[in-house]
Design a protein around this nucleic acid. Structure first.
Length: 407
DNA sequence: TCTGGGGTCCTAGGACCC
DNA sequence: TCTGGGGTCCTAGGACCC
């Protein structure tokens, strides 16, 4: 095998303050204002996106809307337009795919692009070298997104996915940063550990307790120190911290249509709901609604679930999950029966519940649509519901338990 | 920092089977 | 049936990401 040459051709592209940017396209009067997406002023919920104007007041994504209201009472608060976001996300991807065929969407506002082998395609006499060529191409890609969609974006180019993401963060807002092969360690060394993808608040705190603040210190740290924190990921994380991570893009995250020969399908389908105050009956009716929703999504994807999981969070934030393996199904009433059983058994503490959730996993492809004869009565009933919903909207039909108590 | 909703991946113990 | 080791599935919890 040839020795692999490290070469900076992995690009991380991230749309700046994405939801806010889309809101500004929908309503240009929001430009220049402090804008916070995530909920109504003073209401429940958390900040999912905030403009740089709002950030100067200390507003950060993930923060509760209530705290954000206290920090920036004058800001414009918006609940958001999910459909528009996916639409702009898709259109962004279409532009990116004009520049390289190898694109992986990591989230609604973040994509990874592999430019290996594209150099000769784009080379121009004025380019100093191949790195220069790719940098120029990425700049024009960012410009195309801005010109055609009106969305500001940033990009990082590096030898690995992890470093490309870090570089993209350093380039924000609206910048492009190219980290040449050989410059990886020097770029990462002075950064706080939290900047490395894979190190969250918990690991950060534990590293600080060990006196490890920067990535240089993490790289130098003894393996025995890091192992209790990162377990099996220790060596991979240390490689990432040195900028020696893989130059592969990996698989598309929501591996939608991917399935193995046994018919297994990747992923989970879940819905959850947090409420202010609730009594037992509304909780159970919310559970019923959640079962309907996840099952409807499963049928739309053409899958059945082999495992059902209930999630329960008490007001003190203590959270438990209870799951059961079942005969694969996508029929609401069957899932609902299991969920209610799990719920009644799991709800042992004499404390109000603040959240319930239902998740479907161990997904498998359902029998071909042609063999409708194999569907039992519950299946047929569910499919009739889907047909009605396709015509008249999701809320046209509900299970009796959902309707009775949620109106 | 009193914390929404959608996910992914990892760990670890126990059951069960050979 | 006092006893081994490996493989795989199930369940529960937790960290992390956007």
């Amino acid at each position: 095998m040839l020795p692999s040459v490290r070469i900076a051709r992995i690009c991380c592209l991230d749309l700046d303050t994405f939801f806010v940017s889309v809101e500004r396209l929908l309503d240009p009067s929001l430009r220049g204002k402090a804008v916070i997406v995530g909920g109504h002023k003073g209401g429940r919920g958390v900040v999912t996106s905030s403009s740089y104007e709002a950030r100067t007041f200390g507003v950060r994504s993930g923060m509760s809307i209530r705290d954000a209201t206290a920090l920036a009472p004058h800001a414009v608060f918006l609940p958001g337009h999910a459909g528009e976001y996916s639409d702009y996300s898709r259109r962004t991807r279409e532009i990116v795919e004009r520049f390289s065929p190898i694109v992986i969407a990591a989230s609604i506002d973040e994509q990874y692009v592999d430019f290996r082998g594209c150099e000769s395609l784009y080379r121009k006499p004025g380019d100093a070298d191949d790195d220069d060529t790719i940098l120029r191409v990425v700049r024009s890609m960012v410009r195309a997104i801005e010109d055609e969609l009106g969305l500001p974006a940033s990009a990082g180019i590096a030898t690995s996915k992890s470093l490309a993401k870090v570089a993209c963060g350093l380039a924000k807002p609206n910048g492009v940063l190219f980290v040449r092969a050989g410059d990886e360690e020097a770029t990462l060394a002075p950064l706080p550990v939290r900047k490395l993808p894979g190190i969250g608040p918990v690991s950060e705190r534990r590293l600080h307790e060990l006196g490890i603040e920067t990535l240089a210190q993490l790289v130098a740290a003894d393996d025995a120190l890091l192992r209790p924190i990162f377990g099996a990921s220790t060596s991979g994380l240390r490689r990432d911290a040195r900028g020696l991570g893989s130059g592969e893009l990996g698989r598309e995250r929501p591996a939608f249509r991917e399935h193995d020969p046994r018919g297994a399908v990747h992923g989970t389908i879940s819905n959850e709901r947090t409420f202010a105050e609730a009594n037992e009956r509304t909780t159970e009716s919310i559970l019923c609604g959640l079962c309907e929703r996840v099952c409807s999504r499963a049928r739309r994807r053409g899958v059945r679930a082999g495992t059902v999981t209930l999630r329960l969070r008490y007001v003190d934030f203590h959270t438990i999950t209870r799951s059961r393996t079942i005969t694969p199904t996508s029929v609401d009433v069957e899932v609902h029966r299991v969920v209610l059983e799990l719920y009644r058994r799991a709800r042992t503490r004499p404390l109000p519940v603040r959240l319930v959730g239902v998740a479907l996993s161990k997904l498998s492809l359902e029998p071909s649509q042609l063999s409708l004869a194999t569907f039992d009565q519950g299946d047929r009933r569910a499919r009739t519901v889907d047909a009605v919903r396709d015509k008249f909207g999701y809320h046209a039909v509900h299970l009796a338990t959902t309707v009775r108590t949620s109106r």
